[in-house]
Amino acid sequence: MVDKTGLILGIIVAGIIAAFAAVNVSYTLDLIFFLAFYAIAALSLNLEYGYAGLSNFGKVGFIAVGAYTAGVLSAAYGVPFPLCLIAAAIAAAAVGAFIAIPTVKLREDYLGMSTIIIGEMIRILLRNTPTNSVWGGVFGLRGIKPPFDFITNTFERTIAYVGLSVVLFFFTYILLERWGNSPLGRVLKSIRDDELASKSIGKFTYRYKLLALTLGSALAGLAGALYAFYFLYLNPDTFLPLVTFLIWVMVIIGGMANNAGVVLGTAIVILINRLTQIAKDYIHLPLEPNYFQAMLVGLLIILFLMFRPQGLVPEKPVRTPAWRVLEERAPKEIDYLKEGEGGEENE
């Protein structure tokens, strides 16, 4: 089952990226890295919000935890790159679980308010670390050891690293697809749609939500570590709440509980971002493009929620072998409709 809308839009996005590649290769590599980074983060939000219905407004905080864990381990202790990635995911997962334990029991708005506060808390903590320590406070964290340092040519090294990011993106995507298209996907959606009804059919909703937030945070931590090793420098003030909202826009535009849609949403938001940056050099508007772009993000959120809440690529039924059973048996079994009375009733 290939999703046609997603495929067509995907081809368009790939075409634009190819066009970029034709013009400037290193710029395109940068673009691909950002696509992979944001797509991982957006997919992790899709697990939390799209499937489980958890409103995590502190995504950027978990990304920051991952980035700084990887950064500190690499810069201060020389821990090898792959271990740093794993440690980043574990650290972010631990913070995620710590926050999830009290909050996922509560109503959505409590969770939303709590997570946004925690995201800011993490940033402020990082800002206030001593500037003379490895954390660097407001001056930022320096000295992250570049990955793939056995490749001497920096250009080739960048290609290798961006390639790795893309591989990790595919890993995340497949993970989400597996989860989403399994009985687990159904349980998560049932919690999202009606938690009490889900409990009434025996689902341990607390455990599912706790794990969704923990695993989502682990993926966000992984994205953060990728960010750290790409720039080899971290500054607390890049982890502003605006990043969280960018990720939310990606999920809302793309379509919640639809992984292909979320990736498409990511590509659209990133391309809008890049194109405005480019347009800045050619078109002179009485506006500051960066601010205008953020206004546009706000407007897009509102317009999509109002006029296309399902997103560009709407949610699909959970695909499991169960559908084959229905396809095979239903045509044979629906005999009660022929009796004439029908199963319909008036309200």
Binding site: K189, S190, D194, I201, A257, V318, A322
Partner: peptide, 13 residues
Amino acid sequence: MFKGMTVYENVLT
């Protein structure tokens, strides 16, 4: 109902 899901998925869940 689990509004975002089909009747079949509702029963399967």
